[in-house]
Design a binder for these strands. Sequence first.
DNA 1: GACTGTTATTTAACATGTTAACTTAAATTT
DNA 2: AAATTTAAGTTAACATGTTAAATAACAGTC
Lengths: 181, 181
Amino acid sequence: MTPEFNCAVIAKTSGVFNRQGMTDAAGKQTSLEGQDAFLPPNTRRSLPIALLRAREAVMENFRPMLAAHDLTEQQWRVIRILAEQGVIDASEMADKAFILPPSLTRIIRTLEERGLISKLRDENDGRRVLLEITSSGLSIIEQVAPESKAIYERLQSRFGREKIDVLLDLLDELADLSQQS
Amino acid sequence: MTPEFNCAVIAKTSGVFNRQGMTDAAGKQTSLEGQDAFLPPNTRRSLPIALLRAREAVMENFRPMLAAHDLTEQQWRVIRILAEQGVIDASEMADKAFILPPSLTRIIRTLEERGLISKLRDENDGRRVLLEITSSGLSIIEQVAPESKAIYERLQSRFGREKIDVLLDLLDELADLSQQS
DNA sequence: GACTGTTATTTAACATGTTAACTTAAATTT
DNA sequence: AAATTTAAGTTAACATGTTAAATAACAGTC
């Protein structure tokens, strides 16, 4: 059963296509009623939007706390990964933080200007930019990390650890799937 | 078990903290080794990043096709929802497409300039902006929708419909959870 | 060692995300 | 009905996403 692509189901559940079928003042057709073959998948059960909604819902919990420390989500990811990993280069950071290189360039600039990280030269490869967290950056980590941990644990206990584990496994599998082909 | 917050586990699995413990040339401490209480959650099992990765992986499948039709993901969501729903106002669109009002304002402007949608006045409420898809917009829908459907079905068959259903249920539940509190 | 190709990073240009402030119209209050 | 409050959109300002092109350094070939 794949109701996502079935116009009849959409029409019945949305309740919009039931009243006379969407024509504007001039009587032109303004929706796709009766064109089942071309109807797009129902927005409500679409994976991209569901992933977006869930991500937004999760981030809502963290954003106020990060904003209080004047950090964006991406800036937090960068300094947190530096605290975990030590010195790494920009490419590795882009991979681990899932930030595209052009965005990372700007984020690095901002964080360096704020004195939270510093750039180092790689003696073996002049192309690479090595990143290191500063003591100032570490001190922010020490403030934010406990709050972040508390928020995550509250989320975990409300949603259920087992369900989060199942979810993480499914998400990883989905990501790995498209990674290959 | 919550290995996400256990420094020992991170140190063992990342293999980075094992060699002498991350000090820079001057000997200053540059990572959080030995500060378990402040260590952030392990990036690799974090819900926000997992959701981001999964979403990116899914969108990779659609983006080339949308780009071939000169559509961004968000523009496609807007005209698709108009095709499904008929005439709706901007607020309802923002809700259904999960696009923030300022972004939607710009997207509406772009789509109207391209002649894919048109704005109407709401006679009952002068504040509202009603949106309607044009015949030109419908014709794009008719081209893109079958391709979109094919891509989604390929994804479904590769990942498994049952697993997608389980995933969608978990994502919805997670989104609804944070929606309330 | 000059040529070619590849890799890491940056820049450019445009689109969207995010928060706050602003504008206008409706709805409420008094 | 005037004043206040609320709601819908927009604008502004800055941050990030996204793709393509440019730059610079490395790697391999001849």
